[in-house]
């Protein structure tokens, strides 16, 4: 299976679902930071695993902090929310308040980052489950700090054959702070087939 099966229509639909999901996430997020969260237009790409690795290495060559959650239901996969080091620090500090805490995430800050990401990912995927009218269970979030290879560890993820990576790029920023994050979803091919089935079912309702 290649990325070809994920046609423009599916992309558009999934993109809009993510868009709605991120809209909900932004509400929770803005409550936490007490400020408006600016959202950009999401763009979604479906690429094979190796291409995704190269892509990510280009986008964020240094260290990344990724919060991972496993989703399981009608379709399943690993969802990630990525922040680079600077964004992670800015994000956590804008929530916990500024402090002279050095340039690394402490244990508490890591936990806070997990919670913020958890809220965004849950809002995002909860919305998709809502709209598609299917249940989607999620695991508790894990934080992986390191290079992109550490994040996309095939063995840990147990994602099976020919996984496809759906990368949703959407940045959210606060008026005075540049915090950008990126949501990605990695799914095995059979899971993608099931997702497409769900999308088709949904689209026939309206189109």
């Amino acid at each position: 299976m290649t990325s070809d099966i994920f046609t423009e229509d599916y992309c558009d639909t999934l993109c809009e679902l993510f868009n709605i999901g991120m809209g909900r996430a932004a509400v929770s997020f803005s409550e936490m930071v007490n400020d408006e969260v600016l959202l950009t237009v999401p763009s979604l790409k479906a690429v094979d695993f190796n291409t995704a690795m190269e892509l990510f290495q280009c986008i964020s060559p240094g260290n990344v902090n990724a919060v991972e959650q496993y989703f399981e239901g009608r379709f399943s996969g690993n969802a990630f929310l990525f922040f680079n080091d600077e964004s992670s620090l800015q994000l956590v500090r804008s929530i916990l308040g500024e402090g002279n805490w050095g340039s690394e995430l402490g244990e508490l800050e890591q936990e806070a980052l997990k919670e913020v990401s958890n809220i965004i990912l849950n809002a995002c995927f909860g919305c998709i489950a809502d709209v598609l009218d299917c249940e989607l269970e999620s695991s508790v979030p894990d934080l992986i700090c390191g290079e992109i290879n550490d994040v996309f560890d095939v063995e840990r993820m147990r994602i099976g054959e020919n996984p496809l990576v759906l990368t949703l790029s959407m940045s959210f920023s606060l008026p005075n702070k540049k915090i950008t994050g990126q949501v990605s979803l990695i799914m095995a091919s059979d899971s993608i087939k099931r997702l497409i089935t769900e999308l088709e079912r949904f689209m026939t309702l309206y189109v």
Partner: peptide, 22 residues
């Protein structure tokens, strides 16, 4: 989809009706 209260308020000030997605 951007259903934050401030966004809604801004639009309503310009006389539009606000509907949140989905």
């Amino acid at each position: 989809a951007n259903i934050q209260a401030v966004v809604k308020q801004r639009f309503e000030e310009l006389g539009a009706t606000f509907y949140g997605k989905p």
